[in-house]
Amino acid sequence: MTNPTTLLSVSNLTKKIGKREIVHNLNFNVQPGEVYGFLGPNGAGKTTTIRMLVGLIRPTAGTIQINGYDLQRQFIPAIRQIGCIVENPELYPYLTGMENMRLFARMMKNVSQTKIDEVIRLVELDQRVHDLVKTYSLGMKQRLGIAQALLGDPKLLILDEPTNGLDPAGIRELRTFIRMLATEKGISVFVSSHILNEVQLLCDRVAIIHHGRIVKTGPVSDLIDQHPQVEWTVDEWEQAQTYFKSLPYITTIQKRAHNILRVQMPLEKIAETNAKLLQEQLHVVGIRPYQQTLEDIFLAMTGGQTDDSANL
């Protein structure tokens, strides 16, 4: 079962707090050099799982193997393989960025000043590194957080919702950075998120967690909708609906708002369809490919709606 090259191997991981089972029987593997997404809505148990992966809490049952070391029994060698940010980058606000880095470096073996300077340059924080951390913006704290996670030359980087609170530019930058770590430095990244789109853009493989259980694991390409949907905003929506039904390549039609129809159709047919609607004298005021959300996936899985378009 355990591939010798597997970097992180989690099996039958369960955590109970009090009588509540927060996560139940998780199984997944992370391979070297891949970006692995851990996708789930709020309260799904992502942070709880990550706390177990970094040794902050003990599993009630199950094992965690990191590069072949058992986290419970060989904590020191196992944790050496990891750099992490759990929830927020936790730094000492009354110390400077550099003092924080040196403080963490002293807790590891063989981290030289050269290494510290190198990671600080990597996250482009050299300008402000001698200022107190309490004067940093959230984005800068996030960078310093990543810098401290990279100090020990980890093979696996564990990030818990790293894009929380970042602006779109910051998110894009972080994404590029994480991909760079994986492709150029061969670091595996385990990253949790509650945004489907983010995982699609960033990750190679994904595990989806819901109510403490993994409901799906696999390559991200499986998530990308094989049946894309398009939202049409048409004033005469009733006529449009009737017309859509006559088209062979349109499989499902759903009415959303008062004049929006969501239909499942190949994206390359959009122009053709639009032209036909015009011929029918129907006024199309908006066309938008629909971004599937995590909820759609859950809805599809639980069959909570007549909408069967998101069958994965």
Binding site: V54, G55, I76, P77, C84, Y92, M107
Partner: peptide, 14 residues
């Protein structure tokens, strides 16, 4: 309180 305990206890130190 500050959450820095997480940064302390995820180091290779018992």
């Amino acid at each position: 309180t500050a959450g820095t305990i997480k940064s302390l206890l995820t180091r290779p130190v018992q």
